[in-house]
Design a protein around this nucleic acid. Sequence first.
DNA 1: TCTACATTGTTTCCTTGGAAACAATGAGAG
DNA 2: CTCTCATTGTTTCCAAGGAAACAATGTAGA
Lengths: 158, 158
Amino acid sequence: MDTAEEIIKYFIRIRERPNVLEEYHKKLFEGMRLAEVHCIDKIGSIEDANVTKIATEMHMTRGAISKICKKLLCRKLIDSYQKPENNKEVYFNLTEEGKEIYFVHKKYHDRAIQSYLDMLTAYTEDEEKAILKFLQAMNVIYDKQSAVFSQVKDKEEV
Amino acid sequence: MDTAEEIIKYFIRIRERPNVLEEYHKKLFEGMRLAEVHCIDKIGSIEDANVTKIATEMHMTRGAISKICKKLLCRKLIDSYQKPENNKEVYFNLTEEGKEIYFVHKKYHDRAIQSYLDMLTAYTEDEEKAILKFLQAMNVIYDKQSAVFSQVKDKEEV
DNA sequence: TCTACATTGTTTCCTTGGAAACAATGAGAG
DNA sequence: CTCTCATTGTTTCCAAGGAAACAATGTAGA
């Protein structure tokens, strides 16, 4: 197996790895579902977060996010508010309790990012450039595949 | 943002991308769920595939795979068989109809792999080595996180 | 050999999340 | 201004899959 083939092999392995890790600790820590913590994270970081924006960022449907936010509201982890000039859109804020979870999550997240950065110090600038170029290229390929998929879907809907 | 940080950004983006693509065409083509096609692929490629082996490879529970195989058996896409020396384990084979799906899937899969390989021809051998080293290192980090997660889980079960 | 334990596959119960229909509101064209 | 269409958020319905209990079988140690 040459280097290119091995790259593909490891790349696919990474894609296939379940999400179980990285953030899952917090599910255990606070008895919350991964998606709920993730949602809190988005509400904490997006300006005037609403259902639609969160759904887009989390690659989930508005329906799913709507349900999660409802749950978070019940548990008083978030608050909702509206703007005087718009009666349709509903925005979310973290409550004090929500912020606690936000920061615990952030701590773990930052720690994970740092471990990646530490690992990357072993590479030269040229190597880093190559890695980055590769990752960007893979994203472009996925975008293209996504576009093809959308076309197929559109045809079906006709 | 320096190169290392950008690498992490794109890496996370790739991890977060939904699976929607790459194989999803076939769901449309043959009216089958992604996991079902994936399962057929494993049965076609694993020697004496059984529920446990498939579950491990697909990062799913035995229960889930058991149900999928039951469905595939009903639809006559796979056959089951046993060995004389073991009354417990049940193995699966593809039927002729199952093999058709297997090869259609394989065609798309190989085409995707080829597009990755084509993209990689633009890199020097040294660059490829760096990319590979990075992907392997990321896998190691994930393994470590996995191990930590298992420990936490074990503690809970006590 | 017999007994405890491990492993396999299955089933039941439950939660998550998608699809899609819906109501409410906003925006834009005439 | 009004009508149409787009957008937002919600809800209902349903399927997929995990957790866990279970039965059946295999295995290893006394």
